[in-house]
């Protein structure tokens, strides 16, 4: 970083108030959110902020003046500016209206003439405006999200809103309910409701893409001898064949038993086997293991 005094355009003898004033003046000019299209503004603003962090703090300033720290002495964690979000999904609550019929003068001029849609607000005197959008956050149980079970949001006024959950919805997706926002003004249509979905975790099932992953404990004798076991899936229990000699970490794939999204491929269920020894190792088992080890010892770590 260059000389912080030069960056703020103040004298080395400037008072704290003068520095604060100089900083504010420059910050107003260069704040990235006030210059969303200007890439240089962000760099410039960072420079100004860093200079202010240093000179705005009497102790740091004194140390800098004494040459104890250099100008980059103050580092800031990465800062997420609003301009990284504005006009994008996730910030639609701050949009004046992103609908095609609201797209304003540019589009209505372009397509209005050709499509014969006519100018908006033809009434002349009357003032019509689309109602505001409402935004809700809804936490949904894992299986309700996977299976697409409808939910209800209770509004502050006691009324409620039915939300159809598309089968297989993912955590963080947003559902738009057209016309369920604030009422319109005049003959304007009502706004929309946006419902952000949070999917609650499940104690047994995990989701990876459209696959469901389940840890399945098996006993030591099931691992040795193999056999049929019952395993939970998102639509009930199924019988699964464990091969003889199964190891922990081995995966059994149940085709088509994963998430069935409205669009896209149905996932599988992956059962990750986990051998669980009995709670107490009795004398029989101990004696058997000791005698077995004499002639059959093997090293599962030889490739480590």
């Amino acid at each position: 970083m260059d000389d912080p005094y030069k960056i703020l355009g103040v004298d080395k003898s400037a008072s704290d108030a003068e520095i604060k004033k100089a900083y504010r003046k420059l910050a107003k000019k260069y704040h990235p959110d006030l210059n969303p299209s200007d890439k240089n503004a962000e760099a410039k603003f960072q420079e100004i902020s860093a200079a202010n962090d240093l000179l705005g703090d009497p102790e740091k300033r004194a140390r800098y003046d004494r040459g104890e720290i250099d100008a980059s002495g103050a580092e800031k964690p990465e800062y997420q500016y609003y301009k990284q979000y504005g006009g994008r999904p996730g910030a639609q609550q701050y949009s004046a209206g992103g609908d095609f019929d609201d797209l304003g003068d540019i589009f209505s001029q372009m397509f209005g003439q050709r499509g014969g849609a006519g100018p908006r607000g033809a009434g002349g005197q009357r003032f019509d405006m689309k109602g505001g959008d409402a935004r809700y956050h809804l936490a949904v149980d894992f299986l309700d999200a996977v299976n697409g079970n409808p939910q209800r949001i209770v509004l502050p006024d006691g009324s409620s809103l039915e939300v159809k959950i598309p089968q297989g919805i993912k955590d963080g997706q947003t559902i738009r309910l057209k016309g369920k926002g604030q009422p319109g003004i005049g003959a304007g249509p009502p706004g929309d409701a946006y419902v952000e979905i949070e999917v609650r975790p499940h104690k047994t099932f995990r989701r990876e893409g459209n696959d469901i992953v389940v840890d399945v404990p098996i006993s030591f004798d099931e691992a040795v001898l193999g056999g049929k076991i019952d395993v939970p899936t998102i639509d009930g229990r199924v019988r699964v064949n464990v091969p003889a000699g199964a190891s922990s970490g081995q995966t059994l794939r149940l085709k088509g038993k994963g998430v069935k999204p409205r669009k896209g491929k149905t996932g599988d269920q992956r059962c990750v086997l986990k051998i669980v020894m009995p709670k107490k190792i009795d004398d029989d088992l101990k004696a058997f293991a000791e005698s077995w080890r004499k002639d059959h010892a093997y090293n599962p770590r030889e490739n480590m």
Binding site: P36, G86, G87, A96, G97, G98, L103
Partner: peptide, 11 residues
């Protein structure tokens, strides 16, 4: 003004 700029940029 900021919101209008972002709307315009999106458009």
């Amino acid at each position: 003004l900021i919101d209008q700029i972002h709307d315009m940029r999106a458009q």
